[in-house]
């Protein structure tokens, strides 16, 4: 069994401050250059940190969606064997279906999830421009942006999602 060891936080900060190597541990991890992590470093933060260069429009996204997404998510994203990505009713019951339009708090999550997970059979096969275009298409179909609005690292984080303030942190002391 192990018990909490609060001294860790102290050790870490002291060591960072002094710049000294850590003598006690096995030190078996191999240093890696951030450039060599880039292939895996796909997390996007809600303020846009991590968004790649490039961009795309709803019109571009519409063509890609029809080709690569509609077979599961339905025509114009209205739902099929996979969940609808367009539309959504009110959050009027505890079992309401959560959708991008009625629930998601951040537009960056749309980009992040498409890029890391879609299409289902070939994840991470889309170019960044394609991901931007699909994000723009889905946001536009949900009337969250205009139909000619281009999405890129500047514009995407500024899209305000309707349910942005609909959340309560359950246990703030755990953060």
């Amino acid at each position: 069994m192990f018990t909490p060891r609060p001294r860790h936080a102290f050790v870490l900060l002291v060591a960072l401050g002094s710049g000294a190597a850590f003598g006690e541990g096995p030190n078996l991890g191999r240093p890696i250059d951030p450039a060599d992590i880039a292939g895996w470093d796909i997390s996007i933060l809600p303020d846009g940190t991590g968004l790649p260069p490039g961009g795309g429009t709803p019109a571009q996204g519409e063509r890609i969606f029809a080709q690569k997404c509609a077979m599961c998510h339905g025509e114009r994203g209205k739902g099929g064997v996979a969940a609808a990505v367009v539309g959504g009713g009110p959050i009027d019951r505890i079992e309401a279906t959560k959708t991008i339009a009625n629930f998601w708090g951040y537009s960056t999550t749309v980009f992040d999830f498409i890029r890391r997970a879609m299409p289902w059979q070939q994840p991470r096969s889309l170019t960044d421009n394609e991901v931007y275009a699909l994000t723009a298409y889905i946001l536009a179909e949900n009337k969250l942006i205009g139909e000619n609005d281009s999405m890129n690292a500047e514009t995407l984080p500024k899209v305000r999602m309707p349910n942005r303030d609909g959340f309560i942190i359950r246990f703030p002391d755990k953060i």
Binding site: S43, I44, E95, K98, F103, W104, F113
Partner: peptide
């Protein structure tokens, strides 16, 4: 926090007043 798909959608819980728990 990254506000990933699973934390902002799947594992956020709707409350009777329409708000939702996060984290």
């Amino acid at each position: 926090p990254a506000m990933s798909y699973y934390e902002t959608r799947t594992y956020s819980q709707i409350l009777p007043n329409g708000k939702a728990f996060r984290f």
